[in-house]
């Protein structure tokens, strides 16, 4: 078991013929992902890496039954691509694109909610179900099958955790990067609820950062009422000054909201185990699933 994505998922890639899209589609395929279609308007009828290309998502879905879409199209067109996938009935949309204008994203998010489909991202690394399938840009070689679920707002920091766990002999079920933008699809809350319902996931690592209050909401509404599995929490940006946007559009302390201290407090009060470094996160997760933390490299 896993969440959101599995070997059975039929994946299409929007923007497959672009530079990033083709590089990462190849990586996804190499990982074993069942990529059934690409969508590039104007290039329908051609193929790339043996994958048929369609002009529209509707065509791709009709011909291939794709049920997951990975989006690699440039920012000015990405919100439209999200809505195209939602309108076509794709159940899970994963948008990697960074830099989507706020109002485009606000509309796309409302559209996705009305369509009743799930969106991950934008501005995210995507997700991988270890040993089964990947949609996005998480490096292939770092994943290892196991029982820890990961949910994170950061891309590269997620890779750190996955690699750390794998090197310590601790595998993962699904690792989900929800993205660094202020307007996101799935939030911590929703992904945590999915992990809660997944019997294969025995512990969850949650990587938050400064900005907004999604970590607090997850702590109060999902972890605190009884999560039933260990949650290991980590927050980056503890030393970030207020009022400065730290790279991610969403990573900013405004007034008293969005501080690392508030998030750490909420997680601690909810019963999560809060860690100071990625090494500690790895050790705590290893212990939570019954692996000796001494297996961990320095």
């Amino acid at each position: 078991m896993s969440i959101l994505l599995s070997k059975a998922s039929r994946v299409l890639v929007q923007g497959l013929t672009g530079r990033e899209g083709s590089f990462h589609a190849e990586q996804m395929k190499a990982y074993g992902t069942n990529i059934v279609a690409g969508v590039s308007p104007g290039k329908g009828g051609s193929s790339q890496m043996g994958i048929p290309i369609f002009d529209t998502v509707v065509d791709a879905r009709r011909e291939t039954g794709a049920d997951v879409s990975g989006i690699f199209v440039p920012a000015p067109f990405a919100a439209d691509a999200i809505m195209e996938a939602a309108a076509a009935g794709v159940g899970l949309i994963v948008c990697i694109t960074e830099g989507i204008p706020l109002y485009d994203m606000v509309r796309a998010r409302a559209f996705v909610a009305d369509a009743g489909v799930k969106l991950i991202g934008p501005n995210c690394p995507g997700l991988v179900t270890a040993g089964q399938a990947k949609v996005g840009i998480i490096p292939n070689h770092i994943n290892r099958e196991g029982s820890v679920g990961i949910v994170s707002r950061s891309g590269t920091l997620t890779y750190e955790v996955i690699q750390g766990l794998s090197q310590a002999g601790v595998g993962q079920t699904t690792s989900v990067g929800i993205g660094g933008d202020p307007i996101l699809g799935l939030s911590f809350k929703e992904v945590l609820r999915l992990f809660k319902g997944d019997p294969a996931t025995r512990a969850v690592v949650m990587i938050g950062e400064i900005g907004g209050s999604d970590e607090e909401a997850a702590a109060d509404e999902v972890i605190s009422p009884g999560f039933g599995k260990p949650v290991i929490g980590f927050i980056s940006g503890r030393t970030a000054p207020p009022g400065k946007r730290m790279g991610h559009a969403g990573a900013i302390i405004s007034g008293n909201t969005g501080t690392a201290a508030s998030k750490l407090k909420a997680l601690t009060q909810a019963g999560a185990q809060v860690c100071d470094t990625i090494e500690e996160v790895v050790a705590a997760a290893a212990a939570a699933v019954g692996q000796p933390s001494s297996a961990m490299p320095r």
């Binding site: 994170s152 950061s154 590269t156 920091l157 950062e209 980056s236 940006g237 503890r238 730290m246």
Partner: peptide, 11 residues
């Protein structure tokens, strides 16, 4: 590379 990783590096 990556906002979260850089923030963590500062920390």
């Amino acid at each position: 590379n990556g906002a979260g990783l850089v923030m963590n590096t500062l920390d």
